[in-house]
Design a protein around this nucleic acid. Sequence first.
DNA 1: CGCCACGTTGACAGAAATCAAGGTAGGTGG
DNA 2: CCACCTACCTTGATTTCTGTCAACGTGGCG
Lengths: 248, 248
Amino acid sequence: MRPHDLTEIRHLALFRDMRQSSFDALMQAAYVQGFPQGLELIRQGDHADFLHIIIDGAVELYASWAGRETTMAVVRPVGTFILAASIRDAPYLMAARTLERSRIVMVPSSDLRAVFREDSGFAVSVVEELAGCYRTIVRHAKGLKLRSSRERIASYLLRQSMIAGNVAGFILPIEKRILASYLGMTPENLSRTLKVLEADGVKIDGQRVIITDRARLTAVARPDALIDGPEPDDTGRGSTLPPVIARS
Amino acid sequence: MRPHDLTEIRHLALFRDMRQSSFDALMQAAYVQGFPQGLELIRQGDHADFLHIIIDGAVELYASWAGRETTMAVVRPVGTFILAASIRDAPYLMAARTLERSRIVMVPSSDLRAVFREDSGFAVSVVEELAGCYRTIVRHAKGLKLRSSRERIASYLLRQSMIAGNVAGFILPIEKRILASYLGMTPENLSRTLKVLEADGVKIDGQRVIITDRARLTAVARPDALIDGPEPDDTGRGSTLPPVIARS
DNA sequence: CGCCACGTTGACAGAAATCAAGGTAGGTGG
DNA sequence: CCACCTACCTTGATTTCTGTCAACGTGGCG
């Protein structure tokens, strides 16, 4: 593992407050691996042997059933995923695949659990990370159940704009078909609804988005901190923030 | 607090593996309260000062936005809820109200966090409980995104049957309008779809459900351990099992 | 150049929400 | 004991939303 990577991981919320000896123990057991684009890292139902940390690239977490698939989250550096299954020593509820060439650190679940028991600073970080993951997916479920497609899209666009620094223009960080799946609709529906939204203060040109009338779009989206998440500058105790879609 | 209640709480997965001194400390800070039916215990957005443990009655966790509401879970004894917000010291993402007269133990979040730091056995339990909550809502989101209304209803009925001991007949544990909301549809839609399902091996009479053709219903529901959850006898390390709908 | 994946568009079908009446059961009070 | 009230549930008619299927466009890349 490159020293630079170690430093970066060490600064992750999850590993920031642990003893150096604990960190060293974890990292000694861990290893880094590079993966090409489109590779299935984790299959649904597999046993959770490793906590994954992405330090380069992008990973999609998705679920499937009866031949259907849906995107549950997209994780970008530096973020962790599959923490819950690792902790519980349980089968993965979601699969994971790379969306780009990616480099990923894999920490054996057994070491994770051992260090958790010994280092209460780490234990606090794990439980906070996990609570954050839980809250993220609660928000996701709330959005799905309480908002229409149009409202979900509008909220997403406003949220991305905010993350980009409250600018009017930004680039969609993921492909539209994946966004559609994440938002719980078909690509066709997303495409059409984006067009409809042009009457509500947003201009879409390929991956480029320009918010032309923020007030109007906000009226449609009715953003809510208890669904859309806190201000992006709320790094709080320093969470593994969700730069694209959500944390795992 | 009655000794019986203390014993019952002590046997909860969350409190089973902690030191007696830690348990005593927590329980000394905690108090029990009785609530009438229909009382709002927690409001969305409020600050999370207490972990709640329900020892009698039933509590609905729900979310609201723009005048709409949706049921996220129903918790029955003996279960905990609102753990994530307590741990994170964050605002509640969901509201809670009693569905029946209920008795609830409230443990101050600050004590919870203090004991968490000192008692690694408790820390393990907390993180496992939380991971369980996370996994439960991931399943919920998967069901919403991957299954149609009809499939969700069929799965729910099969699941309830299994929890009741794989019997053909059982009683719906919650009102239909709440079930509809939990399953992400309107009461009208639930009502109609239940009727349609009578052609698929299930008979509904009020709250009474009789599965007349399990194979047929199973073919519709296509139950999946990664959505519907493990066998009910998988109390595993003894989780706060989800007797009705889901754990918080 | 031509393939291929992604996105868009159109026509249509199906699912679900909405609006509006009824019906039913359980509880209350006369 | 019965009438009535109130929630809950059901049913029907209708609209809206969303998915499906099919065709076409387009941009990147071999």
